[in-house]
Write a protein that binds this DNA or RNA. Structure first.
Lengths: 147, 147
DNA sequence: TTACCTGCAAACGTTTTGCAACTGA
DNA sequence: TCAGTTGCAAAACGTTTGCAGGTAA
């Protein structure tokens, strides 16, 4: 699920500003990757893009995601056995990861920002980015379980 | 680097208590995996174990690590392009991950424990475990860089 | 015009699996 | 004794790469 709007213009701008060509495939991939709140996988982005560009290849999706990761426009979340998931929400936050249904939800919490600040203040380590996962059972699954 | 001591007895106890057979291979793998502070990979554990059991297979290492993960005796940290790293320190803490040398250091910080508590208090999500990574440059690399 | 990009297919590296032989309890 | 475990080899899986043809600027 993507958020419609003037995403194309935004993506084209972003690509050109960084010195990349704004190809239709990239625009489509960016539109999905940068606006999805569902932490899509490369494969699910591929499936979406194929609806618009039926001949797009998975390799192009991977290359574009790598580009977006290098530009720090998305974060990549890797897990044991399974595909990586991508998150365009790059501000410090908590990933609530349901161990039952696999859903990942972003949670804003002031503690998330504190972590790096405390590392800076208390150690000689120079922080640059972060990832906070909390694993458990989401509200929906919890409800279903207790029926 | 492992911490020597009565590790064998501890590992044998732990395995038997969980209903697993205490084979020499498992004992050796546990000894390394449960006592290393260096966040080893499956391959590096395999290399260590081979010194004692030259015929051990990588498959056995993977199977044993999976077992330890299922028992929640170790955590598995996955990253883009590369091998998973394993951490026997399972209390809430911060992983300081150097983007230059790859070293991972565990940092105890009270904020780490707070995260799950805040999720519990403020959402309907039922936390079960967590992972906190801070990416950046470690003291050693930082020193080298500024020479 | 041309440097960059695409799509294909093949390669890659890590992890998992199937299975016959073996072994801890 | 025998269910559970090992080691091997092969498979599986997600991801990356090389390259010939195509395209944005």
């Amino acid at each position: 699920m993507t958020i419609p709007g003037k995403s194309d213009a935004v993506a084209i701008e972003a690509l050109r500003n960084k010195g990349y060509k704004a190809t239709p495939q990239r625009i489509a991939i960016c539109r999905i990757a940068l606006h999805s709140r569902e932490h899509p996988t490369a494969q699910s982005i591929y499936n979406e893009v194929k609806k618009v560009h039926p001949t797009v290849s998975l390799a192009t999706v991977y290359k574009t995601l790598q580009m977006l990761r290098d530009l720090d426009l998305i974060h990549e979340l890797n897990f044991p056995q399974g595909q990586a998931r991508f998150d365009p929400y790059i501000k410090p936050h908590v990933n609530l990861i349901c161990q039952q249904c696999g859903k990942i939800e972003d949670l804003d919490d002031p503690t998330a920002k504190e972590i790096s600040e405390r590392v800076s203040a208390n150690t000689k380590f120079k922080p640059n980015g972060q990832r906070i996962d909390v694993y458990g059972i989401c509200q929906k699954c919890n409800k279903v379980n207790t029926l």
